[in-house]
Simulated scan of single mutants.
Amino acid sequence: MIAALTPLLYTLGPAALLLVMAVVFAESGLLIGFFLPGDSLLFLAGALVASHVIGLPIWLLAAGVLVAAVVGDQVGYLIGRHFGPRLFSRPDSRIFSQDNADHAQRFFNRHGPKAVVLARFVPVIRTFVPAVAGVGHMPRRRFTLFNILGATAWSIGIVSAGFLFGGIPVIAGHIELFTIGLAGLSVIPGTIAYVRGRRQQKAAPAVVHTDILV
């Protein structure tokens, strides 16, 4: 997916910000957006700002990503709050993986409210945790607080990393290869969580609860 988005970032100029925000929103707020390359896209965007391919100040890129991430998580929370019980009880479909939802549920149960912050840095999990928080009726104010904290750290951290390292000639000359490598690295936490979840499932069948106390 990052290979398809890269040419657009090179050609859109300042309007690339809208594309980045749309991807971040979809990955954060729409359950079908779990396959989108949020981490690698932000790193690439930061690098392209550093190389003046995208003519925007870095703070504006980070602010746009922050807004899209916060709003996306709020939408995901509302989806879980209003439609979650029905959605999470339906069998697998082409656009919804019950397995992904179960992993997010266990992640949330293990880490509590701080999972909203931690999940922001874990691909796939970050798509489903807001909905899980909504299903569990986590207080809206508390969710919003942790949502803002996680989105701020994620957006500023990864965009800044791209901006700083993207200015290095070796990386600037091979941005596409570097972001593909980053995309590969970004799936490692999700893979580890998946393997652990499968092992726990074999050891003892997991029971998914919707009455989470937070």
Results as ranks from 00 to 15, higher is better:
Leu5Lys: 02
Thr6Gln: 11
Leu8Ile: 10
Leu8Gln: 06
Leu8Tyr: 12
Leu9Met: 04
Tyr10Met: 10
Leu12Ser: 03
Leu18Tyr: 15
Leu19Met: 12
Leu19Ser: 12
Ala22Lys: 04
Phe25Ser: 08
Phe25Pro: 03
Ala26Trp: 04
Glu27Tyr: 15
Gly29Asp: 07
Leu30Pro: 09
Leu31Glu: 07
Gly33His: 08
Pro37Val: 01
Ser40Gln: 07
Phe43Gln: 02
Gly46Leu: 00
His52Phe: 00
His52Asp: 04
Val53Trp: 05
Val53Gly: 09
Gly55Tyr: 05
Pro57Asp: 12
Pro57Glu: 14
Ile58Tyr: 00
Leu60Arg: 05
Leu61Ile: 13
Leu61Trp: 06
Ala63Leu: 15
Ala63Met: 15
Ala63Trp: 01
Ala63Pro: 13
Val67Thr: 03
Ala68Met: 06
Asp73Phe: 01
Tyr77Cys: 01
Leu78Trp: 10
Phe83Gly: 00
Phe83Thr: 03
Gly84Leu: 03
Pro85Leu: 02
Arg86Lys: 15
Leu87Tyr: 06
Phe88Asp: 09
Phe88Ser: 08
Arg90Lys: 14
Phe96Ile: 08
Asp102Pro: 00
Asp102Thr: 03
His103Ala: 09
Arg106Gln: 15
Phe107His: 07
Phe108Asp: 02
His111Ser: 09
Lys114Asn: 10
Lys114Thr: 10
Val117Ser: 06
Leu118Thr: 12
Ala119Asn: 05
Arg120Cys: 04
Arg120Phe: 03
Phe121Ile: 06
Phe121Tyr: 12
Val122Leu: 08
Arg126Gln: 12
Arg126Cys: 11
Thr127Cys: 11
Phe128Tyr: 15
Val129Pro: 02
Pro130Asp: 01
Pro130Ala: 11
Pro130His: 04
Val132Gly: 00
Gly134Ser: 08
Val135Phe: 12
Gly136Cys: 02
His137Asp: 14
Phe143Tyr: 05
Leu145Ile: 13
Phe146Trp: 14
Phe146Ile: 05
Asn147Tyr: 02
Leu149Asp: 10
Gly150Val: 00
Ala151Tyr: 05
Thr152Glu: 01
Ala153Asn: 01
Gly162Tyr: 04
Phe165Pro: 01
Phe165Gly: 11
Phe165Asp: 00
Gly166Met: 01
Gly166Thr: 05
Ile168Leu: 14
Ala172Phe: 07
Ala172Gly: 11
His174Ile: 06
Glu176Ala: 04
Thr179Pro: 06
Thr179His: 04
Gly184Ala: 06
Ser186Trp: 00
Ile188Glu: 12
Pro189Tyr: 01
Thr191Gln: 15
Ala193Lys: 09
Val195His: 12
Gly197Asp: 12
Arg198Trp: 04
Arg199Leu: 10
Lys202Ile: 15
Ala203Lys: 10
Ala204Cys: 15
Pro205Asn: 09
Val208Ser: 07
His209Ala: 15
Thr210Lys: 02
Ile212Thr: 07
